[in-house]
Design a protein around this nucleic acid. Structure first.
Lengths: 192, 192
DNA sequence: GGACAATTGGACTATTATTGTCTAATTGTC
DNA sequence: GACAATTAGACAATAATAGTCCAATTGTCC
C-alpha cells in the first residue's frame, strides 16, 4: 500500500465514526481533521471537498464489501449457506455501521446523492453474483426455481431489493437483523 | 402543576437528550423543537433564548436533585449509608446523565458559564447538608472526627470537592462510579 | 357561529459557523 | 542545508442558526 493510500485510509477510518455520530451535515471538516489527528489544511491535501471525502469512503466500503461478498459466494457449503453468508457480509459491512446511527436516514440519502453510481454498481454486481450462484446451484440440481417460474437473475434481484426494502423500513433498530434472517428462511423454504 | 410548567417540563425533557447527543453548540433550537414535537416559534414562547433554556434545565435538575439529596440524608440508617445514598443520588441525577455524553466536558463548561450561580449554590447546600448530618452523627457518638482534627463542615467540603475532582478527572468513563465507591469506603474507614 | 388564546409556518435580519483556498512558517527527512 | 510534508492562521464566500415578527391556522369555550 502506498504512503498516500495509507493516509487516506487513516483519514477515512477516522471520518466514519464522525459521520455516524453527527450525520453528514453536522459533521464538519474540523471534526474529521481532529478525529484523524491532522490539521484541516492537511485534510484538503487528501480530499478536495467534504463531498469528495464522503464519496471516497463510500467507494472504499463498497469495494471492500464486494470483495468479501465474492469470497463468501465462492466458498464452501451449500448455496443457501453461501448466500446467507454473503448477504450477512453485505449487511454487516455496508448497512450495520450506519444503521446504528441516529442519522442513518440522512447518511443513506447523502450516499445516494454523492455516490449513487458506486452504490448502484455494487448492487448490480451483487445481483449478478447471486444470480450466478443460483444458476450454478440449479444446474447442479441443488435448488429448483421452476416452481417459482423465475430465472436466477429475477430471484437474485428480489433478494437484493428485499434487503434494501427492509433497510429502509426498519432503518436502525434491532428488527433489521431479525427481518433479514426471516427473509433468508423464507427464501430457503421457497426454493429448496 | 400549572399548564405552563407542564409545557416547559416537557420541553426540557426533550431538550436533555439533544444536548447529551450533540453538546450545547451543535444542538440547535430546531433540533430541540423537533424533539419536543413543537414549532421553533413555540420554543421561543417558553424560553427567550437557547441559553435561557439550558439554564432552566440546569435549574430544574439542581432543584430536583437537591430535593432528593435532602430526602436521602433525612432517611433511616447510619450516617454512612445516608451519605452514600445522598452522594449516589447527586451523582446519578446531576453527573451521570452528562458523563455519558461525548461532549460532557463542553456541557459542564457551558453549565458553569450559564448556570454558575445555581451550580455553586447547590454545591454549597450539599456541603451544608452533609455537614449537618456529620455533626448530628458526631453528637450521637456514631462517628469520630477528632482523630482527623476536622470539623464537620471541613469534612463535608472535602467530600464534595473530591466528587467534583473525580468527575473532572474521569469525565465520562466507567471509572467514575468506581472511584466514587472507593472514596466512600475510604471515608467510612477514616471516621468510623 | 363567533370570540378567544395558543400554535404554527414562514419570512426576515444579524450573527455565527463552515467551507474551501492560500501563504508563510514549521517540522521532520534525506 | 535542501527538500517535501504539514501546519497555523488569515481570508472571502457560502451556509446555518438565533432570535423576532406576523398572518394564518387550530382548537376551545360560550
Amino acid at each position: 500500500m502506498s504512503e498516500r493510500d495509507a493516509k487516506t485510509d487513516h483519514i477515512l477510518d477516522a471520518a466514519l465514526p464522525v459521520f455516524v455520530r453527527h450525520g453528514f451535515r453536522k459533521a464538519s471538516m474540523a471534526d474529521i481533521a481532529r478525529a484523524a489527528g491532522i490539521s484541516r489544511a492537511s485534510l484538503y491535501l487528501s480530499f478536495k471537498s467534504k463531498e469528495d471525502l464522503f464519496r471516497a469512503g463510500s467507494t472504499r466500503a463498497h469495494a471492500r464489501t464486494m470483495r468479501d461478498v465474492e469470497a463468501a459466494l465462492s466458498g464452501d457449503g451449500d448455496v443457501f449457506g453461501r448466500i446467507e453468508t454473503a448477504m450477512a457480509v453485505f449487511q454487516r459491512e455496508l448497512i450495520a455501521p450506519f444503521a446504528g446511527s441516529a442519522d442513518a436516514i440522512e447518511l443513506f440519502d447523502v450516499n445516494m446523492a454523492l455516490a449513487k453510481d458506486i452504490t448502484l454498481a455494487a448492487r448490480a454486481r451483487l445481483v449478478a453474483l447471486l444470480a450466478q450462484a443460483l444458476s450454478d446451484a440449479e444446474t447442479a440440481g441443488m435448488i429448483n426455481l421452476g416452481s417459482l417460474q423465475a430465472r436466477p437473475a429475477d430471484v437474485a434481484g428480489v433478494i437484493v431489493a428485499a434487503i434494501d426494502g427492509i433497510k429502509h423500513a426498519e432503518g436502525a433498530g434491532p428488527k433489521f437483523a431479525e427481518d433479514m434472517q426471516l427473509f433468508m428462511r423464507l427464501l430457503r423454504a421457497a426454493i429448496s
